[in-house]
Design a protein around this nucleic acid. Structure first.
Length: 327
DNA sequence: CATCAGGGCCCTG
DNA sequence: CAGGGCCCTGAT
C-alpha cells in the first residue's frame, strides 16, 4: 500500500552553528525509539521531512568540530527546489536542531556543579532537538502512551507503511510522514486494523485538528507558553505528559518541568538520590530539587543528565535502568 | 494456558 | 479528584 519514490534532485545547505556544538549528541538521542524516518551513524544523520507539502530526504553531516562547527545538509527532492523554499527549509532546520542556541551562559553557570559540570564537559555543545513537525510529534506522543517501546515501534511502522511514502535517496530507504489530510480521509476502523487500539480515535481527532481545525504550529510558536499549553491540552488524547515533552522539545522552553511520569520518577530517584526504584522519591520533591539547583535551566540541565545516562546504557549494561524502560 | 499491568488520557460519579 | 476502561503485548 505504501508508495515509493526515488529522489533524484540534490541541493546543498551549509550551516555554521553557534559554538560549542556537539554534532552527534544533538543529532542522535539514544532515548528516542528507533523509527524508519531516520538513521544515524557518527557524523551523519539521515532524516526524511515533509516540508510545505514536499517530501525531502536529508543527509545531515558533520563538517566541523565542537569549537568550529560546520554542518552540511544535502537535500534530495523529486524536483528542483526554488530559492525561497530552501530559505524556509534552512530556517526550519535551524529551529528544529537548535543550531543558533547559545550555551555559553549555561556552561559557565553549571561548570562547578559536582554532578552536572562533568556531564556538560563530556557532552559540550549538545542541544535538545526535535526532528519532526508538531503534528508528527503528536502522533509520536499518542503511540508512546501506555505501552512498551516495541509496541510503539510497531504502531508507528504500521502507520508509515499504510500512509507514508518510502523515499530512496543517498543509498537509503526511509519512510516519510503523511500529510494530515491523508489520515483525515481514512476511517477509524481502518486505523484500528494497524493495531493502534483505542488510539485510533485519538489519532483521528488530532489529525482533524491539523487538517481542518486550523491548528497551526507556526502560529503557536509565536504565542506564550500558557497559550501553547492550553492549545495542546485541547487536542483530544494529548495530556500533561505529552504536553510537557512537547513544550520542551518542540517549543524550546528550557525550564518546562511540571510533570514526571512514574517510570521517569524511578529513574530520577536513582539518579539524584541513589534510592532504589521500589521506593521512589515523591514527584514534588524531585521538582523542587530541579528548581533549586538548576532554576530556569532545569529542563535543559536534566536533559544533559538524562542523555548521558542513555548514552552510557547504549555502551554498557545498566541493569536497573533496563528493568525500568520496558523494551 | 490465563491473567494482568503498563513510557496516559478521557470520562464519569 | 479518584478510579475505571481502553487495545495490545509481554511478563509471570
Amino acid at each position: 500500500m505504501s508508495r515509493r519514490e526515488t529522489l533524484r534532485v540534490k541541493h546543498t545547505l551549509q550551516f555554521s552553528p553557534t559554538a560549542p556544538f556537539n554534532f552527534d549528541a544533538t543529532m542522535h538521542k539514544p532515548d528516542h525509539f528507533p523509527s524508519t524516518d531516520n538513521d544515524w551513524q557518527p557524523g551523519v544523520r539521515w532524516q526524511t521531512m515533509l516540508w510545505r507539502g514536499v517530501q525531502l530526504g536529508l543527509r545531515i553531516e558533520n563538517r566541523g568540530t565542537v569549537g568550529k562547527p560546520r554542518v552540511r545538509v544535502s537535500v534530495w527532492a523529486g524536483r528542483r527546489l526554488e530559492r525561497q523554499f530552501l530559505d524556509s527549509l534552512r530556517d526550519e532546520i535551524t529551529y528544529r536542531y537548535n543550531l543558533r542556541l547559545d550555551l555559553t551562559e549555561f556552561n559557565r553557570r553549571f561548570a562547578k556543579d559536582p554532578q552536572l559540570g562533568p556531564v556538560i564537559r563530556k557532552w559540550r555543545g549538545m542541544r535538545p532537538m526535535s526532528y519532526c513537525s508538531l503534528y508528527e510529534g503528536m502522533i509520536i506522543m499518542i503511540v508512546l502512551q501506555n505501552c512498551t517501546v516495541q509496541r510503539s515501534v510497531n504502531m508507528l511502522q504500521a502507520l508509515f507503511e499504510r500512509y507514508g511514502t518510502r523515499l530512496s535517496y543517498d543509498n537509503k530507504e526511509l519512510h516519510c510522514y503523511w500529510p494530515p489530510d491523508t489520515i483525515d480521509r481514512a476511517s477509524e476502523q481502518e486505523l484500528r486494523q494497524l493495531k493502534v487500539g483505542y488510539r485510533a480515535k485519538n489519532i483521528k481527532r488530532v489529525t482533524e485538528a491539523f487538517a481542518r481545525g486550523g491548528f497551526d504550529e507556526m502560529d503557536l510558536r509565536r504565542k506564550s507558553r500558557d497559550e501553547q499549553r492550553t492549545a495542546l491540552l485541547g487536542l483530544y488524547g494529548i495530556g500533561p505528559a505529552s504536553v510537557g515533552y512537547t513544550l520542551f522539545d518542540g517549543f524550546h522552553h528550557w525550564d518546562e518541568f511540571e510533570h514526571i511520569s512514574p517510570w521517569e520518577q524511578k529513574i530520577y530517584s536513582k539518579l539524584f538520590f541513589d534510592v532504589e526504584p521500589g521506593a521512589p522519591v515523591p514527584v514534588d520533591q524531585l521538582l523542587r530539587l530541579f528548581n533549586q539547583r538548576f532554576g530556569d535551566c532545569r529542563a535543559l540541565a536534566v536533559h544533559y543528565l538524562w542523555e548521558d545516562l542513555w548514552w552510557k546504557s547504549k555502551n554498557q549494561h545498566i541493569p536497573w535502568l533496563e528493568k525500568l524502560i520496558r523494551l
